[in-house]
């Protein structure tokens, strides 16, 4: 009976491994085929001869630019989120400010606001500010939308830091700002890195604001570039699979190298969010 249970467990584990993993095998396998080969052979056929021509073609159509654009927006936004959220969290967790409770509750309520209610007003506002079509136009909504979760995690973390450290800093002549910069911020680095990983993945994959606020193909982020690829090359399945492989494999590699950190970040963020 116990042997039977074990067998059942392995069978279930293997089936789910195939369901999750095989689509990626299919993606890479197809990306190495020529278009004609793909249409004439069985889809299970191995890519012989193996061609990397699809990847060359993807690069030639300016895919690297989308990578660059995504990196630009993501790095700026994540840096701003960390800075703005830690400034606010410091006050909310450590300073005796009269409106702290009210402000914290207001931010927490923000975690419940669905992004779609912001879409049309943010579109109108971005046009008025002259940022429509610019990558910088994405930074505002990206920062705002991810602030509540970041503040929630950071405030909780900073509350746990020992009070004595601050008093010591004050006796040594540190202002509140100096205490924040020299004592509280360095001590918060575990929480900061969790937030950074979570927000990096969320923003790297963001789609709907990019769809609404970007119009110029030169400014497209990776998700926009991918999405437009199917419209442009919809019938060339191997080419699309090459573009998909190129855009997903770096993230998967990063994940395999720093697995614990990524899983922890994703779960912390999603739970609080």
């Amino acid at each position: 009976m116990r042997e039977f249970t074990r067998l059942l467990l392995y069978a279930a584990a293997f089936i789910w491994l195939m369901i999750t993993g095989y689509p990626f095998v299919f993606m890479v396998q197809t990306s190495l085929k020529g278009q004609m080969d793909f249409f004439t052979q069985s889809i299970w056929a191995l890519p012989v001869p193996c061609r990397v021509a699809n990847y060359d073609e993807v690069l030639r159509t300016g895919f690297l630019r989308y990578f660059g654009n995504s990196a630009f927006v993501t790095v700026i936004s994540v840096t701003l989120i960390l800075l703005v959220a830690s400034l606010a969290s410091y006050v909310l967790s450590r300073l005796p400010f009269r409106f702290n409770r009210f402000i914290l509750v207001a931010f927490m309520a923000g975690m419940m606001i669905p992004v779609h209610i912001m879409l049309i007003p943010v579109y109108v506002l971005t046009r008025r500010m002259g940022l429509y079509g610019s990558l910088l136009g994405l930074v505002g909504p990206y920062v705002a939308f991810n602030l509540p979760v970041a503040i929630f995690i950071l405030t909780g973390f900073m509350k746990e830091l020992p009070r004595e450290l601050e008093d010591a800093a004050y006796i040594d002549g540190c202002s509140p700002a100096g205490t924040f910069w020299r004592v509280v911020l360095p001590l918060s680095s575990p929480a900061l890195s969790t937030i950074a990983v979570y927000n990096f993945i969320i923003l790297w994959n963001e789609f709907i604001f990019a769809l609404v606020l970007l119009n110029d193909p030169k400014k497209w982020t990776l998700t926009m570039g991918l999405w437009n690829y199917q419209g442009q090359y919809g019938m060339n399945i191997p080419l699309i699979m090459a573009a998909l492989s190129m855009s997903t494999l770096p993230l998967i590699l990063f994940y395999i190298l720093s697995q614990e950190k990524v899983v922890k970040g994703m779960v912390a963020g999603a739970l609080k969010g």
Binding site: L83, A88, L95, G110, I117, G140, F145, I151
Partner: peptide, 25 residues
């Protein structure tokens, strides 16, 4: 000096939040 710091430090977060999340409602 606490109050001044508090207002200064909270300002950026509150500004982003009000402009992009609260006003749109």
């Amino acid at each position: 000096s606490f109050t001044a710091t508090a207002i200064l430090f909270l300002l950026p977060a509150v500004a982003f939040y009000v402009v992009y999340m609260l006003l749109p409602i």
